[in-house]
Design a protein around this nucleic acid. Structure first.
Lengths: 232, 232
DNA sequence: CAGTGGTCTAGACCACGCA
DNA sequence: GCGTGGTCTAGACCACTGT
């Protein structure tokens, strides 16, 4: 009934338990991988795999020559999945809808250029759109798309397909930046989202690059009551 | 000048580039690991390591027998690190401060019990406290701590050490839940945070368990303008 | 049943970083 | 320098799951 071989998850769980039970306190040094492997009777690479997982989850810190230590300053490390808005809506069983509000090629304001880490401010495509769930407002997005990096966006019929979806499917990025904050709805935003002026709204700013080239920066304003949940 | 051996990161980058350049489109099937290994002239486990990374970052999906596919519904997957509040403040170069507002053993409201996934509502320790940065309000926390799971909390001098810090250092969890949303400041909250009533505030709810036993649930209300940033 | 990813092993060498 | 984690290899077997 008992496994005669240890999997890396078994090793991980045993080490984690030892840490939770204070056999090793925060800041303490753990034995070398090789010693742990010998103690557990498994290969060193199995211990290595377990340690990698514990390190990823923020429980321990590993350094060459320095060894493995229990983190002295524990962090809560969470994973946030931000799907395409359409899928997010459909996953709750709601009907997804989409409205293009505005689409213009405009000179880029200074603060948008800064977000994209661009020195010279050229013209970009600005797209404002509303995502609907069950025919009611869900997320209002205000987006700038680089025409240099993604010229094809000019040929996309953005009244049919959201820039969100087109970009995610057609312009993969290599790097991105997310920031999350709260704003109070102004009169115009409130009208668009069918909210009251002054309502507190969660906002998600996302900027993406491919290499050093900026693709897009978007400010997604959610309806009152919207919550972000972590996966694990 | 050139590495004669491929590292798993090299393999990952080459595969990622092929995906970015549409050699494989969303939904497409990639070759078997063994074939890729042969093509690249490396061991299969090296390809496996690369694939694991791409899978973790949400670019591909892998199934036994099913093979490896480029994700048809790309997600933005971010990592969120939430440190101890004191360290978060000190990292910005500010002076950290802390004030205990209230500490009482109270019967648990129904909605708090629900958050903790508890059926019977027993008494818990409720702690309200304010974290300061440079002597100004920073985060207001409203916390419930399970006396059954963490009885030692009753002996901690919470006017000196924050429950946040004590718990993180002394009650490691095995599971947690995070939710992030926005609220408008009510009169009392505004007063505590030196904000204006109606200000939009970012709120982080965190609940932790060890096994099936609840440890604590906390609602952290941040000052106006607070931003959450992702790590990568 | 059979194909594919997941894991384990044993051994080797490398790279980083502290002394 | 030298100790420790990081990685690579080659091969084997396992486990899941589609056909």
């Amino acid at each position: 009934m008992s496994a005669d071989r240890l999997s890396w998850k078994d090793v991980r769980d045993r080490i984690r338990d030892q840490i939770l039970q204070r056999a090793y306190a925060p800041g303490d040094k753990l034995p070398r991988d090789a010693d742990i492997a010998q103690e557990f009777g498994c290969a060193r690479s199995t211990v290595q795999r377990a340690m990698q997982d514990l390190s990823d989850s923020g429980l321990i810190e590993r350094k060459r020559k320095g060894g493995t230590h229990v983190r002295a300053d524990p962090v809560t490390r969470a994973t946030l999945d931000i799907p395409i808005t359409r899928l997010e809506v459909e996953e709750t069983g709601s009907v997804y809808g989409y409205q293009l509000i505005d689409r213009q090629v405009l000179p880029v304001p200074r603060e948008i250029a800064a977000k994209l880490e661009q020195v010279e401010a050229k013209s970009m495509l600005r797209v404002q759109a509303l995502h609907l769930a069950d025919h009611k407002p869900h997320i209002l997005e205000d987006r700038w798309v680089s025409i240099e990096t993604a010229p094809e966006i000019l040929d996309v019929d953005l009244s049919r397909e959201s820039a969100n979806e087109w970009l995610v499917r057609n312009k993969p990025y290599t790097r991105f930046d997310l920031r999350i904050y709260a704003i109070a709805a102004d009169a115009q935003t409130a009208r668009m989202l069918a909210a009251e002026p002054g309502d507190a709204l969660l906002v998600i700013d996302r900027t993406t690059w491919v290499g050093a080239d900026p693709i897009t920066t978007v400010r997604s304003i959610t309806i009152p009551g919207y919550q972000l949940l972590t996966k694990s």
